[in-house]
Structure formats: structure tokens, C-alpha cells
Design a protein around this nucleic acid. Structure first.
Length: 634
DNA sequence: CTTAGGG
DNA sequence: CCCTAAG
């Protein structure tokens, strides 16, 4: 059985791995497995292709030390380049169910830049080469930092029918565009052929979400089955019936090195030259993988700036997940709902019935996501940086873009469907015979209009977004191997089942372009001014699943409160994203939840039995604590 | 680094 | 979830 590598994510020839968050942490292994196994549990991939354009060249010269830093960076990059040529993804792609790729072992970025031959030699390189040349030129002009704005083109493409770059300045982007047929994002299984360099480049060829996504009420429960239509193909997959698409992050061990060279920022602005340190943390690193680095980063973060106070008035505090909205959005004041501040997923929906003989109830709704758009990125990279670093930088920007806080919104005939509890039938999504405009949106979790933080010319914007499709999982996440990479507590009721392949293009209906507005561009001078390492990112919110709560309660029953590290070790050792502080916090909220009325509770409803246990356990250990206090006092 | 609590 | 003071 030939394996289809799922590591190859198109991205203007660059691969953009989008992995479940759990897979990002160090020592996490991601399986490449055949779909012949458990066909009920498949993973998604998102293909991201980002085109860009050269915005402007910075006129500020760069301090000496930065020059040096850049120099180092270059040499490092060159070294990386050399290594990267060796790696070949195909080495891993032949893995079977039992085969894992350990990102721990992989020199991550290099590996991910391990592209098929066509990539390393062909279009992408050519494109990037032009940037390189241009960069060198501008470098001579004492313009060490040119800004490259990577913009997603999908929206425009779709709304205008073609890609139209209004820009007049000769930019490398044009080169890129010319050689790289426009298209932005694709989630495509059938086109994953690595021998098809342009699969992500042409919207005709690479219909983005080639797979049908079947939305249908599960017969069994609310569990979402993610099924691939083709059992012969391989996947990087979750082992659970859950899917999560999130940004990839470096393994912490590599990260430390990388961070110095690469801007691995969650922010769109990426400036390796300024980057003196980590701009992100690895999950779990705080107390597990990087005992040293955590303190290092921590102290760095703390010593540098009190970031909430110094950098801006309210720089990113609550707005971590918010998009930077431009004026029209500000004035629109869509605070209540984030309809505007969303990236759009265009969906061709065909309410086809695979089984005409079945009653309408049992029919599945097949939905095809034609494409989706990634919010505009801004990338800054020194002109002395290598092509390879550019690749990586853009890649990181994109993966970061997909990394956090994005929710999926559903649009039906231009209207946002918010009733997560309703069935598709009730909503009308399953109405057969009529092709309805159906759209998906990537939207910030908590839409907020953020007043542009102005700090002279230093305006920072961060778009921390993610595309998460995560149904419930069955197992206790603390007990499942990280391989699953799927986390729980999906808030979406999406039932994603990729299924039948053949979709005629004419079944595709495009969204009303007014329904989905794109993320506005960020002003040029606004980004990449403040060193990214000064900013830390808030971790994405990951609601505890019922299973996790069960595990937590059980552990606390056994260990008591106040031993959160032990609790962590006992019940959540494998859940790298759950720190003992998290567990402690969760317990806190659990106790609170158990006390309030069910009507006031939010999130996935917890079994009353569980909450009762919480109260009982809490009472018990509180009493124990009191006793001990008394004894020690006396 | 862990705990405990406030935010 | 984040941040911090304390231990």
C-alpha cells in the first residue's frame, strides 16, 4: 500500500504542516498510518498556500549588533540548508500504522522544508530566489529589512473571479504569483500527490477541499466521525475521532536554537534580526521539557518589559485572539458578533444524497469546502536572510496564523448559524434539492474590536488564529498517547466526515462575498517593529473534556488538593498541554461549577455525578487540610 | 520548581 | 489562562 505522505502541505511550494497542538510539543510523535486501519478516525490537513508581495523597504539602518546577528543567522541558515537537502520526507512516508515520525528527532524546520524534489528545485525556489536577489539589492541600499507582506488571495480571487494584484511596484510577489497560480488554502486529500507541484497552486486543479465533508448527525451520539473517503490513503492522523488543526510548533529542544535564528512568532510580524529570544513557548516546556529554558524565557520576559504596561496601553491583553480590524470594522462595531472579523472558508455545498434510498433522515449532507482564506500575514525578514529562512519565516507565520483561537462559524445563506445544538436538518443545511449557500468562517474565538495600539510608528498586530475542528474524543486525554494529538472539548457541532470524492464543480456555490469579510490589511509600518521576543503568547484555550474532568476528579480523590504536580503526573502525564497549574485552576473552576446552578454553567455539561464527586472530594480534603493546620498549630 | 490565590 | 508572591 502506497503511503501518501501527509506531511506535504503546499505553501507556495513550501510545506505547512498543520498539526494538532499536542503534536507540537517536543517528543511528540505523529503517526503516519494507513487509512486502512480505523477508518473512523482520520485527520484533516489544511493546505496553505500564501502568496505575497513586497511591501516596502525599510529605510532605517540596522544597528551593528543586529547586523552581526543577521550574519550569524545567515550562516546558520546555510547550514540548515545543507542539511535540509538531505532530508527526505519520503523516508517517513512509507511508514505504516506503527510507524511514527518523531519530530523530536527531526530537525524540524528543515524537515518540514523537506519538500519533494520538484519543490527544492523548481518553482518555489525560483520564486524565492527572486526575493533573494531583490533582498540583496536592497541590502546594498542599506535596507536590511524589507517587508514582505504575504497576503492571502483567496478572497479576492473568489470575489473577482481572478487574481488581480493592484500593486504596481515590481515585487517579488509578482514573480511568485506569476509562477504560482493563485490559490490560497486547500485542504485536499486527493491532490496530495507530491508529484503534483501545482496542486496547491491552481484553484482549478487543486480544488481546495477536495474531500467532501459530510455533515451529518451521527447515529450514535454527538460523536463526530471523521472518515476518509479513501481507505487506501495514508494519513497523519489522530487516533481518535477528533480532528484538530492547529499550528505547528517546534519541538522545544530544537526551538531553543531555532528561536534565535528564526522568527517563530505568533505575530504576523516576524523579525529574525531583532529576535534575541523566544517568541513563543512550547507547550509543556514550562515545567517539563524545558526546565531551563522556561526560567530563561520567563526571566527574559519579565525583565524586558512589563509587557502589558510598556509596550502598549492594552497591547494584546485580551485581544490575543482578536484580529486587528481596520476602520470600517471599528466603526461598524460588530462587537457582539464577529461576523466581520473572520477569515472565510468558501464552501461549495451540495446537498447530495449518497443513498437515495435512505430516508432523508439518514442522509448525509455532503459539503465541500472549496477553499479558505488565511488572514493576511506580515512578515519581516532581513534582506540578508537566506531564501531558506524566508521559507521558514513565512511558514511559521502561516502556521502561527492557524495556531490559535479560531473558531469555525457557519453561514447559511449569508446568515450566521449560531445554534450549535440544532441539527442540520433543523437548520436547513440538510435540505435536499436546494443548493444553499453555505459558508464556513474562521473567526476569532472572542471577537473583539481592538483599537489600534499606537505607539508612534510601532504598531503591532497579532493574529493568533487557528482552525480547529475538534469533535469530542472518547478517551481520557490524560491517558491517551499524545499521538492522538486530538484534544477534546470541541465546541463545534460540526460533524466532519470526509467522504465521497467525485464532486462536480457546478455544485459549488460561492458565498455572498458580503457575508464574509476578509481580515483587513495591516498598515505597513505597523508591524515587526517591536521585537517579537518581547511578546509572549497566551496559550489557546482548551476546555477540559468530560473525560479529562473525570481523570482529574479521580486523581484528586486519590491525591487530594494541593498536590497538583502529583495529580499532573498521575493523571495527565501525557497531556503536555495541561500543566499542574492548569489542573489546579480547573479544579478551582470545577468546585465553583459544582456549586452554581446548572443553568449558570457553561461549556459542555458535566454529569452531575461528577460534580457531586467534586464537591465531596473538595469537602473532604478541605477538612483534612483544616485538621492538619490545627495539628501543626497545636 | 511548586503552591496558592488573585486577576 | 495568566501572573506572582511565597515557600
Amino acid at each position: 500500500m502506497v503511503s501518501q505522505t501527509r506531511l506535504e502541505y503546499g505553501f507556495n511550494g513550501y510545506q505547512v504542516p498543520v498539526f494538532p497542538r499536542a503534536c507540537r510539543s517536543a517528543r511528540v510523535r505523529v503517526p503516519i498510518r494507513k487509512t486502512s486501519g480505523n477508518s473512523q478516525k482520520r485527520a484533516f490537513e489544511i493546505l496553505v498556500s500564501v502568496a505575497g508581495e513586497l511591501l516596502q523597504e525599510s529605510k532605517t539602518s540596522v544597528p551593528e549588533d543586529q547586523q552581526i546577528a543577521r550574519k550569524n543567522l545567515v550562516s546558520k541558515e546555510q547550514e540548515d540548508e545543507r542539511q535540509s537537502t538531505k532530508c527526505n520526507i519520503s523516508d517517513q512516508e512509507t511508514c505504516d500504522e506503527k510507524t511514527f515520525i518523531s519530530y523530536h528527532q527531526i530537525d524540524t524546520l528543515n524537515k518540514f522544508s523537506c519538500a519533494p524534489d520538484w519543490f527544492n528545485s523548481k518553482a518555489a525556489d525560483a520564486n524565492l530566489k527572486s526575493f533573494d536577489q531583490l533582498a540583496n539589492v536592497s541590502g546594498r541600499n542599506a535596507n536590511p529589512s524589507a517587508e514582505l507582506r504575504s497576503s492571502s488571495l483567496v478572497s479576492r480571487e473568489f470575489s473577482e473571479g481572478k487574481v488581480e494584484d493592484a500593486g504596481t511596484e515590481p515585487s517579488i510577489i509578482r514573480t511568485v504569483k506569476s509562477e504560482t497560480p493563485p490559490l490560497t488554502v486547500s485542504l485536499d486529500v486527493s491532490q496530495m500527490d507530491r508529484k503534483t507541484p501545482d496542486f496547491f497552486c491552481s484553484d482549478s486543479k487543486a480544488s481546495m477541499f477536495k474531500d467532501w465533508i459530510t455533515l451529518g448527525p451521527s447515529r450514535h451520539s454527538d460523536t463526530i466521525d471523521l472518515v476518509n473517503r479513501d481507505d487506501d490513503k495514508k494519513y497523519i492522523g489522530c487516533t481518535q475521532a477528533a480532528t484538530t488543526l492547529k499550528a505547528f510548533r517546534l519541538p522545544s529542544n530544537v526551538a531553543d536554537q531555532r528561536i534565535k535564528n528564526l522568527s517563530s512568532s505568533r505575530h504576523w510580524g516576524v523579525s529574525p534580526n531583532l529576535n534575541g529570544g523566544a517568541s513563543f513557548r512550547n507547550d509543556g516546556k514550562r515545567f517539563q521539557d524545558g526546565r531551563t529554558s522556561y526560567s530563561r524565557q520567563r526571566s527574559k520576559r519579565m525583565s524586558s518589559f512589563k509587557r502589558r504596561g510598556v509596550l502598549n496601553q492594552r497591547p494584546f491583553s485580551r485581544s490575543d485572539r482578536g484580529f486587528q480590524l481596520d476602520n470600517r470594522f471599528n466603526s461598524a462595531d460588530k462587537r457582539s458578533d464577529g461576523d466581520n472579523s473572520s477569515a472565510a472558508i468558501r464552501v461549495g455545498s451540495s446537498i447530495a444524497s449518497p443513498h437515495p434510498h435512505l430516508g432523508s433522515r439518514e442522509r448525509n449532507v455532503k459539503l465541500r469546502i472549496k477553499s479558505f482564506k488565511v488572514p493576511e500575514l506580515l512578515v519581516e525578514i532581513p534582506t540578508t536572510a537566506t531564501v531558506g529562512s524566508l521559507k521558514r519565516t513565512v511558514m511559521e507565520a502561516v502556521t502561527t496564523a492557524l495556531g490559535d483561537g479560531l473558531h469555525v462559524g457557519i453561514l447559511l445563506q449569508g446568515k450566521k448559524v449560531k445554534e450549535d445544538g440544532k441539527t442540520l436538518l433543523q437548520t436547513g443545511i440538510s435540505r435536499d434539492g436546494k443548493h444553499r449557500n453555505l459558508g464556513f468562517m474562521l473567526e476569532p474565538g472572542h471577537p473583539q474590536i481592538i483599537p489600534p495600539p499606537c505607539l508612534g510608528e510601532q504598531r503591532i498586530t497579532r493574529h493568533v488564529t487557528s482552525f480547529t475542528l475538534e469533535p469530542e474524543t472518547s478517551g481520557v486525554s490524560g491517558h491517551v498517547p499524545p499521538v492522538s494529538g486530538c484534544n477534546n472539548g470541541g465546541e463545534s457541532d460540526l460533524h466532519l466526515v470526509s467522504s465521497l470524492p467525485n464532486i462536480s464543480a457546478n455544485t459549488i456555490t460561492l458565498l455572498n462575498s458580503q457575508s464574509v469579510l476578509s481580515i483587513p490589511a495591516i498598515s505597513v509600518g505597523a508591524l515587526a517593529v517591536v521585537p517579537t521576543h518581547l511578546r509572549a503568547r497566551r496559550r489557546i484555550r482548551r476546555p477540559f473534556s468530560v473525560s479529562e474532568v473525570e481523570a482529574l476528579v479521580q486523581a484528586v480523590e486519590k491525591l487530594g488538593t494541593g498536590r497538583w504536580r502529583d495529580v499532573k503526573l498521575h493523571a495527565f502525564d501525557n497531556a503536555k498541554h495541561r500543566t499542574y497549574v492548569d489542573l489546579k485552576d480547573k479544579w478551582k473552576t470545577l468546585v465553583h461549577t459544582a456549586r452554581i446552578s446548572p443553568q449558570q454553567r457553561r461549556g459542555e455539561p458535566l454529569p452531575q455525578e461528577l460534580l457531586d464527586r467534586v464537591l465531596a472530594v473538595h469537602a473532604y480534603w478541605s477538612q483534612q487540610q483544616a485538621k492538619q493546620l490545627l495539628e501543626s498549630g497545636v
